[in-house]
Each structure stands twice: as C-alpha cells, then as structure tokens.
Amino acid sequence: MDIIGAIFNIDIWQVGKFFVLIGLFIYLIFSFVVVRQVKLMTQVVSGILTNSLRAISWIFFLFSLFIFIFVLLFF
C-alpha cells in the first residue's frame, strides 16, 4: 500500500475514504427512499403504528446522515 502511494504520490487511505463516502452516500439515499416508502405505506393503511414507523425511518435517515458527515469531516 505504501509502495503504491509512493509511486503515484497519493495517500491510498484518502482513496479508501472516498470509496467509503460513496458507500455511505448510497446508503443515505436508500434510507431516504425508505422514509418515503414508509410514508406511502402508512398512507395506504393508517392508524397502525403510523407515528412509530415514521419516527424509526427518520431516525435511520438522520443517523446515516450523521455518520456520513462524521466520516466526511473527521476521518
């Protein structure tokens, strides 16, 4: 890994961070789609754990957003 970095003058772990960020970004989009999916589902059948399921989906999204920003800024 150090040899590659020395030859191409790049920090290989920054490249690794880039791919991690891509993965987290894709996950972020997926978690947002789940938020929309839960909203759609609770509109079809409402009154059964509607608020709880919506809250859980938003928590997932916000947590994945937090992880993405954390890796972006502090990694």
């Binding site: 789940v34 079809v44 997932f60 992880i67």
Partner: peptide, 19 residues
Amino acid sequence: FWYLVLLMFVYEQFLSWFF
C-alpha cells in the same frame, strides 16, 4: 456500515411483513 446495512435489512423485512 455493516450494522447500518443489517438494521436496514431487518427493518425492510419487517415493513414487508407488516404492510
């Protein structure tokens, strides 16, 4: 990341059964 993906898998399976 492993646990994030796992949690989403479990949640999706639950939603699929629930709705």
